[in-house]
């Protein structure tokens, strides 16, 4: 009988602890804001100009975010290593990521743009990583980490399209990039700007006329990846 009571007591303690931790948990919202310079991105309709003075419109803009790490003011880290998110400019719901945390104040956020090599080599995935989402190279296995497609008079491709599919997980062509951003908010949301102009004019200058297409891993994909990493910033609240 005594053994049972101890077991029951143990169960109660476990339940209570779970409840306690749960009570302290709240959700933090990470909200991505696709922009072109200072303006909010408008798909299809709006014409923009990049740092090379090339005009362009955007038809599709998507990227993977994974391995999100929240860091609190005591430098404690909370890692979400099994969560993959596909952020799509055409789908506002996808731009909002909700994560449970017990951190009161978040000092910084770190995340990977792209998909780690393990998920690129271990067969067919599901959820955000379902190849059905169109972010997957079938002929040369691997995820497309980020996609920007549109039209530009500077492109010599048919219908003046330009199309950047950035990916690559193998050594020497790795296009995943880690982004670290210091947050400056006390509230329950982290607002992150993603500036498309940086794709063309970040660390590397990429001209649509010279490079209208990137459809495979390699040096162009890695340069675009560097630029993409620099396109994220914490939204300035007025």
């Amino acid at each position: 009988m005594r053994r049972y009571s101890i077991q029951i007591l143990h169960t109660c303690i476990v339940l209570l602890t779970v409840y306690h931790v749960h009570a302290q948990q709240h959700s933090i919202v990470i909200q991505f804001h696709p922009k072109v310079g200072a303006q909010q991105l408008q798909l299809f309709t709006e014409a923009y100009s990049n740092s090379n003075g090339e005009p362009f419109t955007v038809n599709r803009f998507r990227f993977y975010v994974s391995h999100i790490v929240l860091i609190d003011e005591h430098r404690q880290e909370q890692t979400f290593s099994n969560d993959y998110f596909l952020v799509d400019a055409a789908d506002t719901a996808s731009q909002k990521i909700m994560l449970p945390t017990s951190f009161k104040k978040i000092h910084a956020i770190r995340f990977t743009v792209g998909v780690d090599s393990l998920r690129n080599v271990s067969g067919v995935q599901t959820g955000a990583l379902d190849p059905m989402n169109g972010m997957f190279w079938t002929w040369n296995t691997g995820y497309v980490f980020a996609k920007l497609e549109g039209q530009s008079d500077s492109s010599h491709m048919a219908a003046h399209t330009f199309s950047y599919h950035v990916g690559g997980y193998k050594p020497g062509e790795n296009a995943t990039r880690v982004v670290v951003l210091k947050t400056n908010t006390d509230n329950d949301s982290i607002d992150i700007t993603v500036d498309e102009l940086k794709w063309f004019g970040g660390k590397h200058l990429i001209s649509i006329q010279q490079y209208p297409v990137c459809h495979q891993p390699g040096s162009l994909a890695m340069q675009l990846a560097d630029n993409i990493a620099g396109s994220f910033s914490i939204e300035n609240h007025p």
Binding site: N120, V121, S122, G123, V124, P131, F136, T138, W139, N140, T141, G142
Partner: peptide, 20 residues
């Protein structure tokens, strides 16, 4: 898989012929 070894896992191979 494939003549050029481009596909790295049997589980993703059928996606290639289905969508090609």
């Amino acid at each position: 898989f494939m003549w050029d070894g481009g596909i790295n896992h049997l589980d993703v191979q059928p996606i290639a012929p289905i969508t090609n």
